[in-house]
Simulated assay, not measured.
Amino acid sequence: MFISKMIDHYALNDLHKDRSKEYQYHIDSAHTPINIERETFYKVVKPISNIALNITSTEHGYNIGKFGFKSQIPSGEKFNDYVTGEAFINESEGKPNVIFVHGWRMKAFDRVKKIFHNSIMNNLGWNMYYYTLPYHLDRQPEQSLYSGEFMVSANINRTVESTRQAIVDLRALIQWLKNNKQGPVIIIGVSLGGFISNLVATLEPEIDALVSIMYSNRLSYSIWNTIPGKYIRQDLEYHGVNYNDLIKYWEITEPNQALPKINKDNILLISAKYDQYVDIQDANLLWEAWQKPTRYIYNCGHAGIVLKRKKIAKDTISFLQNKIR
């Protein structure tokens, strides 16, 4: 336990080397989504007619390149309003389609790829799509100091709209895959990507299986009670926002507010007992609210994403193979 917490503590200090230099606080109370119907708020505006796919190479029977499409929830930021990602598409038809959703502040897809990529490409041949969250990677605005700075912040409305943008565009991608590809659609989310994947599972019935790894559940809880949110909390408190306010403002983003629309037997949750990024109590809340789907709890901290990646890959792939036969 002590070693796990120390590793997470060191990583957290490194994480905060990059942080906002100015206060991000903003609220437009008239447009804060309180008491709004979830299904309407996260509804896909219209089906995607086509996804741009730029194939740049071939390897191991895969066509490899980038995909992109216009976001359905425009933010006014040029880079952010075009959804991008990497695609690895098997030349054989009918393969399962895996969408990977990365974590907060990730600067590349490498951390997720190191867990799953080679195992899937070399042993399974599944199609893989690496989905870029709002304000991250290629979607990071020029004025942003680090990847993901503008997705989760003390800007209360923008944080909700970023979550909405992530959900609606991810749902649009899922629906496009269902309409244009033969295989099942699987979502694998890591950290913040797990939070987004969990939320989309409460809204989108076209998902065949979900794996959520070291996920957060309530953004308000994470910001107020864990070290990664400490500077955002300081920003909010300085401007007079208390914890109960934040819960109210961000409640519509909580996955535990609704049951999944997919078969509970096709959900795998993975948590870390000594996680210093995602409090295990918050992770427990989702598991219980969702009527206790399959869950593994590792004896590690959040750094288990790196230190236990072989175990994560083995557990995840074994689970999925049993569900999508």
Rank of each mutant, 00 (worst) to 15 (best):
F79S: 15
M128R: 12
A108W: 13
A108L: 14
I174T: 10
I36P: 05
I252S: 02
M214E: 11
D18M: 15
G189P: 05
A272Y: 05
V278D: 11
R38W: 13
Q175C: 11
E37P: 03
N80R: 11
A52L: 13
A209G: 05
A201W: 03
K5T: 10
A201T: 09
M151I: 09
A87K: 05
L177T: 04
I262Y: 01
G125K: 07
I270S: 13
T32P: 00
V152G: 00
H302L: 09
P255S: 06
T58D: 13
V98A: 03
W224G: 10
F67S: 03
D81N: 07
E161K: 11
N256T: 09
I73E: 08
T58P: 08
V200R: 03
I51A: 06
I312F: 15
T294P: 14
L320A: 04
L170Q: 01
D28H: 10
M1P: 12
A258R: 01
F319E: 02
N266T: 15
Q276I: 09
K114G: 12
R309H: 14
A289R: 00
K264T: 15
W287F: 04
S144Y: 04
A289N: 01
W126I: 04
R171T: 06
K248T: 03
R218S: 08
T56K: 11
V160W: 01
K46Y: 15
V98C: 06
G65R: 01
L246H: 02
L192C: 00
N127G: 05
H31K: 12
V241F: 07
G76P: 01
N256Q: 09
N242F: 04
K248F: 02
L246A: 05
Y243A: 12
E251G: 11
Y277A: 15
D110V: 09
A87F: 14
D81C: 07
L307Y: 15
M151P: 00
E22L: 07
Y130W: 07
Q175M: 08
G194N: 02
K310S: 15
A52N: 10
